[in-house]
């Protein structure tokens, strides 16, 4: 590899490798995302090789539908990690929002639009609690969300007990079971969230402030950015997106219970890291997280289709995750000793 950078004569035409390296230096986010895309393509190729039916329109639409909630949560978590935060409570927030849906639509006959708003509002309220403790009380995010993870789950358990609520109205189920051009509406919803998240993070002043706070909090403070407000807003957004994810989740399963989505926070953090977002803050790759979510979805689905037991799946998932992250950090260290 070393032939390209050091020994190239200035008057010679620049080699492809050299151009690639220049591009990588100028657009690190795009380069990182491209690397993730290659992993995704490789996985697709492998599973296609094992089982041709893997890449059928039907299976792809199933994967996308299964992954929609992860994608939505991944966008929120990308923002949280970009400000050097973390949110372990999202699974519990999904449970609270799901509980809201169940109470309004199954136990009562509220209109669906009202329930949807209430679910997102419940999620946002949880986000407000997280944001207040992190931004105003300055308790480390890991501790706050560890605490609220327990608290929010407790709320869902108190209200629902061990009941399972089902028989949701068709209008809600349509979100995951309807078809627009062959894909479920939840997929379009996830796409919308990705586009909005991408534009917000990369092209708005709020996005710049998010990156600044995560990259160097002191510098951001000195340049007049209201750090508390940025952090608070990001956690509220995470809460709201958890509410949206809950809608997609409940619509797909047609059921709600207090223990729903237990443990998904680790999956979501994993997919964000797979997508290339640094846990050290100051960098957020929304598209990378989208790809990370798809990798996760494809792995889960593909390992199932190719006949791996669910026990084996978990082992392989863990191995691939560690491998990819180790490769990333090794690469990063080589570039910047």
């Amino acid at each position: 590899m070393s032939f390209s950078s050091k020994h190239a004569e200035p008057d010679q035409p620049r080699s492809v490798m050299q151009k690639l390296l220049d591009w990588k230096e100028a657009y690190p986010d795009a380069a990182s995302t491209t690397a993730t895309a290659f992993i995704l393509l490789a996985l697709l190729a492998i599973f296609y090789g094992v089982n041709e039916r893997f890449i059928s329109l039907l299976n792809i639409s199933i994967i996308l539908n299964q992954t929609a909630a992860y994608i939505i949560l991944g966008v929120g978590m990308t923002l949280v990690i970009a400000i050097k935060g973390i949110d372990l409570s999202i699974g519990s927030i999904v449970a609270v929002s799901g509980m809201m849906l169940g109470l309004l639509l199954v136990n009562n006959d509220f209109p669906v639009w009202f329930a949807l708003i209430a679910a997102v509002a419940a999620g946002s309220l949880c986000g407000v609690a997280n944001g207040y403790c992190v931004a105003n009380l300055r308790v480390p995010a890991l501790i706050v969300t560890l605490g609220t993870m327990i608290v929010f789950r407790g709320v869902a358990l108190i209200v629902l007990g061990h009941d399972i609520l089902f028989r949701y109205p068709d209008a809600l189920l349509w979100i995951a079971r309807g078809r627009i051009l062959g894909l479920a509406p939840s997929v379009y919803l996830a796409a919308l969230v990705v586009i909005l998240g991408f534009v917000m993070l990369n092209y708005t002043s709020f996005g710049k402030r998010v990156i600044a706070v995560g990259g160097n909090e002191e510098a951001a403070r000195l340049s007049g950015i209201n750090i508390r407000r940025v952090k608070f807003t990001v956690y509220v957004l995470m809460g709201a997106l958890s509410g949206v994810a809950a809608i997609v989740w409940v619509a797909r399963l047609n059921s709600t219970q207090a223990s729903v989505a237990t443990g998904i926070e680790f999956h979501v953090i994993a997919l964000v890291v797979l997508g290339g977002t640094s846990l050290f803050g100051g960098r957020g790759l929304i598209i990378g997280s989208l790809l990370g979510a798809l990798i996760l979805g494809i792995l889960e689905n593909g390992l199932g289709v190719t006949g791996f037991s669910s026990f084996m799946q978990q082992t392989v998932l863990g191995l691939i995750f560690i491998g990819v992250v180790a490769l990333r950090s090794w690469q990063a260290r080589r570039a910047d000793p």
Binding site: F266, I269, A270, F311, Q314, T315, V316, L317, G318, F321
Partner: peptide, 10 residues
């Protein structure tokens, strides 16, 4: 986080 999944899988 990775070994949490991996060890449990094993």
């Amino acid at each position: 986080l990775g070994t949490l999944t991996f060890f449990r899988g094993l």
